[in-house]
Design a protein around this nucleic acid. Sequence first.
RNA 1: GGAGAGAUGGCUGAGCGGCUAAAAGCAGCAGACUGUAAAUCUGCCGGUCCACGACCUACGGAGGUUCGAAUCCUCCUCUCUCCA
Length: 376
Amino acid sequence: MQRLSFELLHTDGAARRGRVTVPHGTIETPVFMPVGTRASVKGLTTDQLAQLGPEIILNNTYHLMLRPGVDIVEQLGGVHKFMGWNGAVLTDSGGFQLFSLASIRKIREEGVEFRSHIDGAPYFLTPEGSVGIQTRMGVDIAMAFDECPAYGLSHAEVEKSMQLTHRWAKRSLAARRTSALFGIVQGGIHHDLRKASAEEISSMDFDGVAIGGVSVGEPKAEMLDVVNFTAPLLPKDKPRYLMGVGTPEDLVNGVAAGIDMFDCVMPTRNARNGSIFTSEGKVAIKNAKYATDERPLDPKCSCVTCRTVSRAYLRHLHTNDEIAAAVYNTIHNVSFYLDLMRAIRQAIASNSFGAFREAFLAVERESRVAGGEKDA
RNA sequence: GGAGAGAUGGCUGAGCGGCUAAAAGCAGCAGACUGUAAAUCUGCCGGUCCACGACCUACGGAGGUUCGAAUCCUCCUCUCUCCA
């Protein structure tokens, strides 16, 4: 059976409407993948997640190899069976963790030596090891093992890191078996490096190509610049994945640049922290002004949360640290993201994505201005 | 009736002569969050103001000692514990 197939159905400017098929289903792109690091989309049961209808979610190699461990996941029939999830799964290779947990690792040519953040136990992860783990967990799409350089490094340092990522990409690819495998373009904020990396990674036989090393602390304008510059350099006949991005606005801009896949912690984490995405901008549900607000979070949303409870009740739940606050907020935020992607797909299909994007960004701008006036 | 302990900012609770507008926690108010070590983190939190600074009112009440008192003394009010 084929690992992955990609069909480019339609384009509207640079925006692409496509379809990715993997063993666990068909994914309509552009797509947003909710993040479920430890084989759990935080705040949701697998059933609740399924009700929201994402076609694919993201899990994490680093976290799952530490707990419960690859052996256990494999023994239990793979990550899908483990969490009772029938949709597709993409795993990050652990490259990002070795960036965000920088203090407890040592990078070498062969791989990365690191200590578990849980119990300090020593591990050694290589490209072959990472891809092997992802394969054994039975994921639909695995990511190449890369190094994610921090923002602010010199051109020379980013270049050196990028070259290591390229060597690791070759080794990752050689280790590909049953799971599809995406390569990752690095290069920081430097156009020449991004170009070199895009060419190098694109030349390899990956099933898809990702832009990594973005949203690591750089100003938003630089991120946009990197995406706008790099996306057009990627193969047209493969899915393009922008890793770790982003805000609703970022998704719309990413699609405009020609990105097909996104993942981000933002809808789930912000939900737990009481920050809600709505069609009218952000709602900080803990704010006193919602104490007696009987409206739903978003009048244009039809998710379970918006159909059932008021802002006043959600503020009450959040104020009292009730678990239901996280559940309701996560349901809504994930719904909002999935709805947004649906609307984006529709706009592309009807050749109106440009207008859609303009209207969307105008609302975002307005809500920001409105929030600013309130603060002043 | 007798003996003792205590009254501190919305609450709990440190401080026990100057470095105290007064620790810390909670509550409250606001902000952040981008391939998840995050149900987390940060800021503000007596009042007023042209508020980086200034002024006013402050540690139960009234006096007193002292250059200086939430901190020491006297009396008063109230609370709690124990013994009758």
